[in-house]
Amino acid sequence: ELREAFAKVDTDGNGYISFNELNDLFKAACLPLPGYRVREITENLMATGDLDQDGRISFDEFIKIFHGLKSTDVAKTFRKAINK
């Protein structure tokens, strides 16, 4: 299930999730959020999830993000976006 969610976000299939891919995910989900809020959520996920600070999120980092977000608003938003 997590591998499928990761693949859905990794639209270019390079094995990593970029800032733009995350941002595009939230935009495509048509969530009722202003653009600046989408950017804040994306920046927050990148800042906390990109553990090796290479500017992208690997599958291992994605798993840690996903499990670390349990019930936060960001987690709910992220799950809604993935499930669209």
Rank of each mutant, 00 (worst) to 15 (best):
D73G: 11
T77N: 14
E61G: 08
I41C: 03
A81Y: 05
L31P: 10
N23K: 14
N83I: 07
F19K: 08
A81Q: 12
D24V: 05
Y16L: 05
K8H: 04
L25A: 11
E21P: 00
D12T: 07
A47D: 09
G13S: 05
A75C: 11
E40P: 02
L25K: 00
I57Y: 05
G49N: 06
F59Y: 11
Y16P: 00
F59C: 09
F59G: 01
A28R: 07
N83G: 14
K84F: 14
F26M: 08
Y36C: 12
S71R: 10
L33Q: 12
E21M: 05
D52E: 14
K27M: 04
H67Y: 07
K8S: 10
T72D: 10
P34K: 04
K80G: 15
R37T: 12
L69K: 05
V38E: 05
A47I: 06
R79A: 12
T77E: 13
D24I: 05
K64E: 08
E21H: 10
V38S: 04
F19L: 13
S58W: 01
D73H: 11
L69Y: 05
P34Q: 06
T48F: 08
T42Q: 09
E61Q: 14
K84D: 15
R3K: 08
N20F: 03
K8W: 01
I65P: 00
A29S: 09
G55F: 03
G68R: 14
R79H: 14
P34G: 05
D52M: 12
K84T: 14
Y16E: 03
L33D: 12
Q53D: 12
F19W: 08
L33S: 05
I65D: 01
D52Q: 14
S71K: 09
C30G: 15
G35C: 11
Y16N: 02
F6E: 01
G35T: 13
L25P: 00
T11K: 13
R39Q: 10
E21C: 04
D12Q: 08
V9P: 00
M46D: 05
V38K: 05
V9T: 03
L2G: 01
V9M: 08
L22V: 03
L22M: 08
F66T: 07
F59K: 02
H67D: 14
G49R: 10
D54C: 09
A47V: 07
M46E: 09
T77L: 07
N23S: 14
I63T: 13
L31H: 13
I65G: 02
F19T: 11
R39G: 04
S18T: 14
E4K: 12
T48D: 11
L33M: 12
E21T: 03
G49Y: 11
I17C: 03
F78M: 13
D10H: 01
N44R: 10
A7I: 15
T42A: 11
D54I: 06
E43F: 02
D54W: 05
K70F: 15
I41Q: 03
F19P: 05
D60N: 10
A5R: 00
G15C: 01
L25D: 00
A28C: 06
K76L: 09
E1G: 04
N20E: 14
V38M: 10
Q53V: 09
P32E: 14
H67V: 05
I17L: 02
S58Y: 08
F78K: 15
E43S: 09
R39T: 09
E61H: 10
A47G: 09
E21Y: 01
D54E: 12
T48S: 14
P32V: 04
H67F: 03
E4G: 07
G55H: 04
V9N: 00
K76G: 12
Y16C: 02
V9E: 01
R79Y: 08
D24N: 08
L2R: 04
L2P: 01
L31I: 14
D54N: 10
D52Y: 08
N14Q: 05
T42Y: 11
D12V: 03
N44M: 08
R56Y: 11
G15D: 02
I41P: 01
V74C: 13
A5L: 14
V74P: 14
L45K: 04
G13K: 05
R39W: 02
G55N: 07
G55Y: 13
L2F: 05
L51E: 07
K84G: 15
M46Y: 07
A7G: 03
I63Y: 07
E61N: 10
S71D: 13
L51I: 12
L45V: 07
A81V: 12
V9S: 02
E21S: 05
S58Q: 03
T72Q: 12
G13T: 02
N20Q: 11
F59L: 08
I65Q: 03
R39P: 03
F19V: 15
G13F: 03
S58A: 02
R37E: 07
E1K: 06
T48Y: 06
L45E: 03
C30R: 14
N44S: 11
S71M: 11
K64T: 06
G68T: 13
F59N: 02
I41L: 09
Y16I: 01
D10Y: 00
F59E: 09
F62M: 04
A81K: 15
T72M: 11
G13R: 07
T48G: 11
P34Y: 02
F19D: 02
G68W: 08
L69C: 08
E61W: 01
A47P: 04
L25M: 05
D60G: 07
I63V: 15
E40T: 04
K64L: 03
K76W: 05
E61P: 00
G35Q: 13
I17E: 01
K70I: 09
D73M: 10
S18M: 11
K64H: 06
A28E: 14
L33H: 08
L33F: 14
G49C: 05
G35A: 15
V74K: 14
E61A: 10
T42S: 07
R39N: 07
V38I: 14
G35K: 13
L22S: 00
R56S: 06
Y16G: 01
N23A: 14
A28S: 06
D54L: 06
I17Q: 00
K64N: 08
F78Y: 13
R79L: 10
A75N: 12
A47S: 11
R56T: 06
L45G: 02
T11L: 07
S58M: 01
T42K: 15
L51G: 10
E40Y: 03
E61L: 07
T11P: 05
I65H: 04
K76R: 12
R37K: 14
C30Y: 09
L25F: 09
D54G: 10
G55L: 03
P32C: 04
D54H: 12
N23W: 06
P32I: 03
T77R: 09
N14M: 03
K8V: 04
A75F: 07
R56C: 09
P34S: 06
E40D: 06
D12C: 07
G68A: 15
I65L: 11
G13W: 00
N20W: 04
I41G: 01
E4W: 00
K84S: 13
S71Q: 13
D10C: 02
N83W: 04
V9K: 02
G35N: 13
A75P: 14
R37Q: 15
F62N: 00
G13L: 02
L22D: 00
I63W: 04
D60E: 12
G55Q: 09
D50K: 15
F19N: 03
D73Q: 10
R79K: 15
K76N: 13
P32K: 11
F66H: 08
T77I: 08
V38N: 03
L31N: 12
L22C: 02
I63C: 15
T48Q: 13
N23L: 11
F19M: 12
D10Q: 01
I65Y: 06
I63P: 00
D50Q: 13
T42H: 07
F6D: 01
F19A: 12
C30E: 15
G49W: 06
K27D: 07
E40W: 02
L2S: 02
F62G: 00
K80L: 08
C30M: 13
G55P: 03
K27W: 01
L45S: 03
P32S: 09
R39F: 03
T11H: 08
I17N: 00
N14H: 08
F6M: 00
V9R: 01
D10E: 01
R37C: 09
G49D: 07
G35H: 12
N20C: 07
V9G: 01
N23P: 15
R56K: 14
V74L: 10
P32D: 15
E40N: 02
Q53I: 08
T42M: 12
K27G: 03
P32A: 06
G13C: 06
K80Q: 11
E21I: 01
I63L: 14
Y36Q: 15
S18N: 15
C30Q: 15
D10P: 00
F6C: 00
A47E: 11
N83L: 06
T11N: 03
I57W: 02
E1P: 04
G13Q: 06
